[in-house]
Computed example of a mutant assay.
Amino acid sequence: MRNLYISGYRTFELGIFKEDDPKIAVIKKCLKQEISSFIEDGVEWIITSAQFGTEQWAVEVVDELKKEYPTVKIAVIFPFLEFGSNWNEKNQSKLSSIKKLADYVESTSHKTYQDPSQLKNHQAFLLDHCQAALLVYDPEFEGKTKFVYQAIIKKQEIKEFELRLIDVDQLQNSSTEEYY
């Protein structure tokens, strides 16, 4: 297993609207535990699209983990050219800092956004180039991540593909650990 795809809930799906929301620390703690485990199992590349929320937090976590695991690399692969160019200045600045943490930045489509097929092709590309996925996602609480979750379930029917979920229970257990 060389490549791990990470995705999950967006900030707005979690009701997170500030950088200092305590939920972020809980999510990052869970991400750190799972990503460390994957790295110890041989993962070399962490791949994400740098969407707001889970994907950007994962890049930040992996950047921190590079102190302990200096050989791990981060790839940010966007679905299309100029991804995020229509975001507000603050969000574009955050995306720029995420790109600087990456060892590799590319887009699957070398055109600006045209239609939803680019998103579907992007998802297929990522899943074809990874052997496992880590999702901050709970099927009981659907969000945009449901589409990648369903694609992974279909992929598992024809090919071995590891999927780990950080679900609501794990997040809640991790948040209550903070108080003991």
Score class of each variant (00 low, 15 high):
Tyr149Met: 06
Gly15Thr: 03
Lys159Thr: 13
Ala58Asn: 01
Glu178Thr: 12
Asp21Ile: 02
His122Trp: 15
Gln172Gly: 08
Ser49Phe: 00
Ala132Gln: 11
Thr11Ser: 13
Arg2Trp: 01
Tyr179Glu: 12
Val72Ile: 15
Leu163Gln: 04
Ala25Trp: 00
Lys154Cys: 03
Ile98Val: 14
Pro139Asn: 05
Thr11Arg: 12
Ala50Cys: 07
Gln123Asp: 09
Val168Cys: 11
Lys29Glu: 11
Asp128His: 09
Glu13Lys: 04
Phe12Gln: 11
Glu140Arg: 13
Asp20Leu: 00
Glu157Cys: 09
Ala102Ser: 10
Ala151Ile: 05
Glu19Gln: 11
Ser36Pro: 01
Ala151Met: 08
Ser174Asn: 10
Glu44Ser: 12
Thr71Phe: 10
Thr71Lys: 15
Leu65Tyr: 06
Cys30Arg: 11
Glu89Thr: 13
Glu177Gly: 06
Asp63Trp: 11
Thr48Pro: 05
Lys66Val: 06
Tyr137Cys: 04
Phe78Lys: 10
Arg10Leu: 09
Gly143Val: 00
Glu44Gly: 08
Lys18Glu: 13
Lys120Val: 14
Glu157Val: 08
Ile158Asn: 15
Leu31Tyr: 00
Pro139Val: 02
Pro70Gln: 01
Ser174Pro: 04
His122Ser: 11
Ile98Lys: 03
Arg10Met: 10
Thr145Leu: 08
Asn88Asp: 15
Tyr9Leu: 03
Gln56Val: 02
Gln156Met: 15
Ile24Trp: 03
Tyr137Asn: 00
Val43Tyr: 04
Glu19Trp: 01
Asp103Ile: 07
Phe17Trp: 11
Leu4Asp: 03
Leu135His: 03
Tyr179Arg: 12
Ala132Glu: 08
Thr54Asp: 06
Pro116Lys: 14
Glu178His: 08
Lys159Tyr: 06
Leu135Tyr: 02
Cys30Thr: 09
Tyr5Met: 13
Lys146Gln: 14
Glu140Met: 11
Ser107Trp: 08
Ala151Tyr: 01
Pro70Leu: 05
Leu65Thr: 05
Trp87Cys: 08
Ile39Asn: 02
Tyr179Leu: 14
Phe80Cys: 13
Ala132Tyr: 05
Ala124Gly: 04
Ala151Cys: 06
Val43Trp: 00
Tyr179Ser: 12
Asn86Gly: 09
Tyr180Ser: 12
Val62Ser: 08
Lys73Val: 07
Phe161Ala: 05
Ala132Met: 09
Thr71Tyr: 10
Pro22Ser: 01
Lys90His: 10
Gln131Ala: 10
Ile46His: 01
Asp169Pro: 03
Val61Cys: 03
Asp115Ser: 15
Leu134Met: 05
Phe141Met: 10
Gln33Ser: 10
Leu134His: 02
Ile6Val: 15
